[in-house]
């Protein structure tokens, strides 16, 4: 079995987080997060997760609604892959790997790195949640005096046609 690739992890993460590849890689944490995922769940589960994501992409053939349904069917409602995918989302947004629920580890095995932990000292400040709410992580990435008087910058693709 080949090791799960960073490319596949980033492709999955783009669809799970709604952040672009440039933003995800721009945290500098793609590789450490993939290593954490593998350490916490084992390569068999990670490989199955990536395969399910690719299958969902393939069967929906570019139709967004179909893809949404396929993700829910193949991943989020799956007893094994669902909790892992939700954890990947939380990992990117909060920078913390949350321990999987006991029902999951009872069924699929407890790996050595399964416990709740921060991944690196940088993962808190790189959490996507700060970008998502247009704020800086408290205590890091100082935004500069008076910056709070400015409206947050929101990418056009998130505005869905709304005006600034």
């Amino acid at each position: 079995m080949t090791a799960p690739s960073l490319d596949d992890f980033v492709a999955l993460s783009v669809d799970l987080t709604a952040f672009g590849e440039t933003d995800l890689l721009g945290t500098g944490l793609g590789s450490p997060y993939l290593a954490k995922l593998r350490g916490a769940c084992g390569d068999a589960v990670v490989t199955a997760l990536f395969a399910a994501h690719q299958a969902a992409r393939a069967e929906s053939a570019g139709d967004p609604d179909g893809f949404d349904r396929a993700l829910r069917y193949r991943i989020f409602s799956d007893d094994c892959l669902g909790p892992v995918a939700r954890n990947v989302i939380k990992l990117w947004y909060a920078g913390t790997w949350y321990g999987l629920p006991p029902e999951w580890t009872d069924s699929y095995g407890a790996q050595s790195a399964a416990q709740t932990s921060t991944v690196t000292a940088a993962s808190y400040q790189e959490g996507l949640l700060w970008r998502a709410i247009g704020a800086n992580p408290p205590g890091a990435k100082a935004p500069g005096f008076g910056s709070w008087a400015e409206p947050p910058r929101i990418d056009d693709r998130y505005l869905k046609g709304a005006r600034r």
């Binding site: 440039t22 935004p143 400015e150």
Partner: peptide, 22 residues
């Protein structure tokens, strides 16, 4: 120049994002 401070921090975040991308 007070606005320049937060402009610089904004630029910093953009540079960091670029540099971490292959």
């Amino acid at each position: 120049l007070q606005d320049a401070v937060w402009w610089m921090f904004r630029l910093r975040d953009s540079v960091n994002r670029l540099i971490r991308n292959p």
